[in-house]
Design a protein around this nucleic acid. Structure first.
Lengths: 130, 130
DNA sequence: TCAGTAGTTCAACGGTTGTCAATCTAACGC
DNA sequence: GCGTTAGATTGACAACCGTTGAACTACTGA
């Protein structure tokens, strides 16, 4: 649930707390992160961890899986990526666009800034946007 | 001032407010933005605008220039880019890295994920990271 | 010199956020 | 069933945040 697009500011706000940023970074290392690990690695109590994971969930950044009485969290990288897309619109820089839809959610409706990489021969798989 | 590296969470927090995100987006459109424009386009009082621009400045996101009695703000895009770099570490995806230092602040000390684009001939100017 | 203007700083206020102890719920092992 | 455990929820509280009117500072133009 909470699969409707979340406002960018809500995601930013979720990432704007040291503990939550720490959680997200830990999750990026593994495919799935057990709640008990957070209890060991974070300097806060259980209710506080629960509070922070809830905020991350509401922001769409993590996904919760319950297995028996254990909880496992995983990072929804596509949310992070679409946030990067939004930021890229404000501060464009070197970036690769795989032709078609492979780059991410919003690669299709981006301003027409594309230019072929390398020489002028057709190279359909890689376009450089600046 | 405030040119020392700012913590990622502080920048996220600065971006996590609708009014501040609006300001940043407006700044991305022009090279420089007059304070008076913000007064016209935002639904808050002058002191509030001052408060938000101060937070954005402290986060390193904008730069202030005073000309006579007018203030002009400009976006520091490199801060946005280095934030994207940090996020990219957590959620890698297609991305172009210009060889050397042209990509941004942290392209040098990134994990060794680089691979040459296209065929195997040396193409020093463009590296694809995945 | 002096009134007017642009924007900041200050003080105060209500609302939100982060924290924890206590409590609750659901699954586990016996 | 029954005690134990993992983790969420609740309630309370202090700290922080966003907003504003009022006062202030610095520049402008006559």
């Amino acid at each position: 649930m909470t699969r409707e697009p979340v406002a960018a500011t809500e995601v930013f706000k979720a990432l704007g707390d040291p503990i939550r940023w720490n959680i997200v970074q830990q999750m990026a290392q593994q495919e799935e992160l057990a709640c008990s690990v957070l209890e060991d690695t974070l300097p806060v109590s259980k209710p506080t961890i629960s509070y922070h994971t809830k905020i991350l969930t509401q922001a769409g950044l993590i996904e919760v899986r319950k297995r028996g009485r254990n909880y496992f969290y995983s990072l929804r990288r596509e949310v992070l990526r679409s946030l990067m897309d939004e930021m890229w619109l404000l501060a464009p820089g070197p970036r690769l666009v795989v032709d078609g839809t492979a780059t991410g959610p919003s690669s299709a409706d981006r301003p027409a800034l594309k230019a072929a990489v390398g020489d002028d021969t057709a190279r359909p798989a890689a376009l450089l946007t600046w």
